[in-house]
């Protein structure tokens, strides 16, 4: 198996080639070490960071931006969105506060991405 990928770790967008022909996964075409990890993960079990919003009460803001603190399996993105959309947060809330822990047993927390006093 040989896969051509575009690394999404930064705006550079390196063109990666991932191959398992030597018996183990090898990545070429990267310009930083994050490309190696991305290439291996993307070829086997791709993940994405989800950024979205949840409802917030007790403030002049009505939506709180949130993100998953790490990548979640790509196949679970819409299930994660459904779970995140059930959440309502009461202000005050601070950047980094966990608003939903271990979403869908992925081991990844959903955290606040802004402070709302």
């Amino acid at each position: 198996m040989t896969k051509e990928l575009i690394c999404i770790c930064c705006p550079q967008g390196c063109r990666l080639t991932v191959s398992d022909e030597s018996g183990e996964l090898t990545v070429t075409g990267y310009t930083c070490k994050r490309g190696i990890e991305y290439g291996k993960t993307e070829a086997t079990a791709p993940t994405r960071v989800i950024t979205t919003t949840v409802a917030v009460t007790g403030s002049s803001w009505c939506r709180l931006p949130v993100k998953t603190a790490g990548g979640v399996p790509k196949s679970k993105i819409f299930d994660c969105m459904d779970a995140i959309n059930q959440v309502t947060v009461q202000a005050p809330v601070h950047t980094g506060d966990v608003v939903l822990s271990n979403i869908l047993e992925t081991g990844v927390d959903v955290v606040a991405a802004r402070t709302i006093e």
Partner: peptide
Amino acid sequence: IHNGFGLHYFKEELTGP
């Protein structure tokens, strides 16, 4: 609210807010 900000300046990936 998407991420990808700050890789040059803060050396980490941040959302806009």
